[in-house]
Design a protein around this nucleic acid. Sequence first.
DNA 1: ATAAAATAACTGACTAGTCAGTCATAATTA
DNA 2: TAATTATGACTGACTAGTCAGTTATTTTAT
Lengths: 214, 214
Amino acid sequence: MSDLVEPCSDEVPLSRREQQKEEKNKALIDAALAVFSRVGFAAAKMDDVAREAGVSKGTVYLYFDSKEQLFEEMVKANMAPLMTEIAENLARPAISATERLKSHMKFFYTKILNTNRRQIMRLIMAEGPNFPHLAEFYHANVLSRGQAVIKAIIQQGIDDGEFRDLQGHGLVQNIVAGALVAGIWKLVFDPFQPLDLDAYFDTHVDLILNGLKA
Amino acid sequence: MSDLVEPCSDEVPLSRREQQKEEKNKALIDAALAVFSRVGFAAAKMDDVAREAGVSKGTVYLYFDSKEQLFEEMVKANMAPLMTEIAENLARPAISATERLKSHMKFFYTKILNTNRRQIMRLIMAEGPNFPHLAEFYHANVLSRGQAVIKAIIQQGIDDGEFRDLQGHGLVQNIVAGALVAGIWKLVFDPFQPLDLDAYFDTHVDLILNGLKA
DNA sequence: ATAAAATAACTGACTAGTCAGTCATAATTA
DNA sequence: TAATTATGACTGACTAGTCAGTTATTTTAT
């Protein structure tokens, strides 16, 4: 409460307790990510989350009201740091649209696909219909921001004569699609047909940039 | 038993019982698709499947050994008719690679994305890691066949000088990606940002064909 | 034909087990 | 010591899977 009133500049002099509390919160979020990723929402046990975080089950309920809330907080906590980074990509030095697009795509691969955030991506797809809140949050805070960046880059490319103006409905989704599929493939089909993410990335960029070329 | 010995040409004179049995099997598969799609595997209740199929819970277990088996059979039953159709697309009249690719993509949109098979697609992504059997089955019977068709078309395009040879790892996945993402979007984010599948398809084809163009 | 006997299909109450969430008690910190 | 934080045994709601008994269909006997 008081946090909201205080000037946000203070030097965080955390007491031992507050410190431990934060650590435990983090541990629970991490454990939740691990457990939910492993078995999905419904099959995940709060006992397992607790054990994995090194606390008892009761403690989990001192930090989160319910399993649902834990799930949502876990997703939000893992996505929050990304959101500011995406925003920074909007205001970017004046390099060519081609290079900007390449760099933004690289960002996507390194910051999501190659981290365990891709698990969250999968969870959103898997559980999204059962968590409209969450799907909406994810759409509003991650997807539409990512879309805005890509749209801006494409517009720059069109203005500069680098890209053609193909006016398509769902152009952004088509551009990002390759990356999403790579993430899913890694999680579901890699054992049967392994995917080399670096080589895949090159193909993806090549195909898209050629597809957009004026 | 005797069926296996008889010439396979016989006129299927099903007794009333056999007929009802088949109908019920179908009804259960349909109900399973509906229920699993609605809430995912873990949260699905066998009671609900039974009710939706118009039988009692006990009956479900006369047709399927377990919840797992019902799930797998449901996926297989829904995918089987597709598999032969895909195979037919391999042996195709001598039209241009461009037209063939377009037509195969259309096939994908009309036979999967615009039907409730897209629910199955989502379920595979959602539950795949918990059902390695199923992921493997899907990969072997649907994905690799689809890949073979697209690879053949691309090779034709390269040979005819229509497409460039971009040698990419994961080229096929990149080509299909747009379609998969469209399916997922429809199921998860459509309420927040609707997607017009027809317009999206045009963008997808446009982008990919230009990306491949020699 | 018709009834009786045999078989196959179905039912739903029941069991055995699971797990989200609670709360009386214990441990830790200030 | 008092307040806060943590524990884990406990509860109650819920559900996959079972099975003794019922109903519908088919076969056999008259």
